[in-house]
Each structure stands twice: as structure tokens, then as C-alpha cells.
Computed example of a mutant assay.
Amino acid sequence: MSSLNAATDVLHTTLVDSQEERDRRPELMDGPDGPECEWASYERGRMHESVNAIRAGRGLPAIPLEDVIRVERLAVGHSDYSRKFAFYCAELAEK
């Protein structure tokens, strides 16, 4: 299995696990594109942490949250949002 596929799987698991906690974060808050549910920010933050953990393990510098926000926007609206978001984050982790 390629390192990109492995990173995608790890990040997809992180995202799915985070999504299972949505009912614990129902409040609205300010997000990068306006008001959003607190769980959206939480999931994005977990993905950011996970991407940077993978990068650190490869000796790469941390990336800013804005990079994760950018790739999340590419995944929004797709029927396979979770897998696409995980894949795009894996690309961030690998470069």
C-alpha cells in the first residue's frame, strides 16, 4: 500500500471518529465561511492535528490550518465528502 493510501486511511478514520461526536457539539460558532456548527470546527481541527502528526513523523514542518480549510472546501458537496477530505488532507501530509 502506498504511503498516500495509508495516510488517507488514517485520516479517514480520524474524520469518521470525529464525526461520531457531532451530537456533543451542537452550538453555532464563527467559522472560516461564516456561522457553522461547532462540530465542523472540531472535525477540521482534528484533521489539522492529524495531518501535522503525519508530517512530523516524516520530518516535515507543520502546515497552517488554512491549508486544511482550503482542501476541505474542495470536498464540500461531494457524496463522498469524508473520503475526499481525507484524501486531500493526505496529500497535504505527504508533500
Rank of each mutant, 00 (worst) to 15 (best):
E20V: 13
A56S: 05
D9H: 11
A86L: 06
D67K: 15
L11Q: 04
D30L: 07
Y81M: 09
E94S: 02
L60P: 07
A56V: 11
A86Y: 00
V76F: 08
F87R: 12
E94Y: 05
E43P: 04
S82F: 10
T8A: 11
L74M: 14
Y42F: 15
Q19E: 09
E66A: 14
E43I: 14
P32N: 12
W39S: 02
L92P: 11
F87N: 05
A40L: 12
E49C: 00
E27A: 15
A6N: 11
M29P: 00
L28E: 10
W39A: 07
A93T: 08
I69H: 10
A93F: 08
E36K: 04
A86E: 00
E27F: 07
A7N: 02
S2L: 07
D9V: 14
E43K: 13
P26K: 01
A86I: 10
R46F: 05
P61A: 08
A75P: 04
K84W: 03
E27L: 12
A93H: 04
P61N: 05
E94P: 00
Q19L: 12
Y42A: 02
R46G: 03
A62R: 15
M47H: 04
I63Q: 05
M1Y: 11
E66W: 00
S2M: 01
V68C: 02
H12W: 10
A75F: 08
S18A: 14
D30G: 05
D67H: 13
E94R: 13
T8M: 08
D33R: 14
A6D: 14
E49I: 10
W39T: 04
N5Y: 09
E36H: 01
I63G: 04
R25G: 01
